[in-house]
Design a protein around this nucleic acid. Structure first.
Lengths: 239, 239
DNA sequence: CAAGATATATAGAGTTCACTATGTAAGTCG
DNA sequence: CGACTTACATAGTGAACTCTATATATCTTG
């Protein structure tokens, strides 16, 4: 007796979800058959249907098990330096450079899901819920960061998180079309602009002419924290 | 004798491409069969294969026939007002609000193509070429606009075009996941920040605050028109 | 340890779809 | 007008894929 049935079932479920995440990210959701997922997990398609009922069910369960947020990952390496600009560089480096293959594939999957959300209400609902949950976290991090650095962002924390994420996603998109069309400096400058960091702008020829933003230097209370209900059953998960 | 063969052939080709653009944008490329495209064009799949050889050939021909650029469309309605902030509002309104169904579907297709480019070298090559061509145009328009408005963008014109496009694409993505998560004010503020327009930052509580731009109210003819080399063989095309 | 329950394997039904091979009506040209 | 060509239609093939129905090995329970 190696495993109880419950243990075996749980492990199978985990392996199926992991395999699905891997393959979906690598080949696109439509590019992966149920059999392929099962085989990668060391099972057969029967197990998939016993667990999830359909391929769509597998996808939805996968999304549901997805805890890691975009910005959480992004800011993982921020701490390596104290210089704000370098921190932004690290953030962009995480995405822009093909430094980490896992990040790249994960972003591909994220983008595919946002597309799918436009046509699939179930996917849209799950993505929306997850988005709201993770944004509450990242907006606190951003607000805290801005406060720490002393910058004056262009928008309130919640909207700032949206803007930063949007810019990064858009740059990643652009980079897939033409990698050389996105300069690292410009990406960092864009982030800095959103975050209200005054940088020497390259401009056309004019150099300095920096931020000098017109703001009321108000306090930015970092915690929104309304009844955090973290469903602990969910698993951390990236690739 | 209604049509010469040449005429009929040309019309069939046009109709097939139009139908493909429509259906691909509405249901996604994988979600549309060759038969469906042919039927929508009033032909059969035989015509598709006579013209394009494969479904992939149809897609590539479609991309090749694509003249309209992202930013060109965006700035179409800029001229309606002189106030820079309102112009940015118009740009965002074109994308963010589901104002124009055609624009929405077209952006879906653009995003799907950028995904596909990551796995399909042929698509990547065509997209890259088109991207470079249209960016040269839009960077001129942006540079001219910034000069006219008197703003100090955060990056050189070519990179500025990339940043603006990226932000807009990213915001559109985000809006598909959760439409209410993107406020119009923040979107405009983000654009303004990239373009170097000084805006009163909404800070924590987003307010009106719009006016107060640092501009000389000058005339705004949106056409840059320096040696516009429109390859006349290509068709204008959106939906 | 027997009897039942459970988790997964196996085999295949039914469908969709890209693509091919061939037929055919309309146009072209001597 | 007749031979030839062009542009497309028609019918079908084979592969891939989702999902179902059923079998089987393993675990559980009295």
């Amino acid at each position: 007796m190696a495993l109880t049935q419950e243990e075996r079932k749980a492990e199978t479920r985990t392996r199926l979800l992991a395999a699905a995440a891997d393959l979906f990210a690598e080949h696109g959701i439509e590019g992966v058959s149920v059999d392929a997922v099962a085989e990668a997990a060391g099972r057969t398609s029967g197990a998939v249907y016993a667990h999830f009922g359909s391929k769509q069910g597998l996808l939805l369960a996968l999304l549901d098990s997805w805890q890691q947020s975009f910005l959480t990952v992004l800011f993982a390496e921020v701490a390596v330096t104290d210089e704000p600009i370098d921190q932004l560089g690290a953030v962009w480096g995480n995405i822009g450079k093909g430094s980490d293959e896992r990040v790249r594939r994960w972003m591909l999957l994220e983008h595919e899901l946002s597309l799918r959300a436009a046509r699939d209400p179930d996917v849209a609902a799950i993505l929306k819920a997850r988005n709201q949950e993770t944004h509450r976290r990242s907006e606190r991090e951003l607000a805290w960061w801005a406060h720490e650095v002393g910058s004056q962002p262009v928008a309130a924390p919640d909207q700032l998180a949206v803007l930063v994420k949007a810019l990064l996603n858009g740059l990643a998109m652009q980079q897939r079309v033409d990698p050389r069309s996105v300069s690292d400096d410009a990406a960092v400058a864009g982030l800095a602009a959103l975050l209200g960091l005054g940088i020497g702008s390259p401009g056309t020829a004019s150099a300095e002419a920096t931020g000098t933003v017109v703001v009321k230097p108000s306090e930015a209370p970092p915690t929104t924290t309304t009844t955090r209900q973290t469903t602990t059953t969910r698993q951390e998960h990236i690739s």
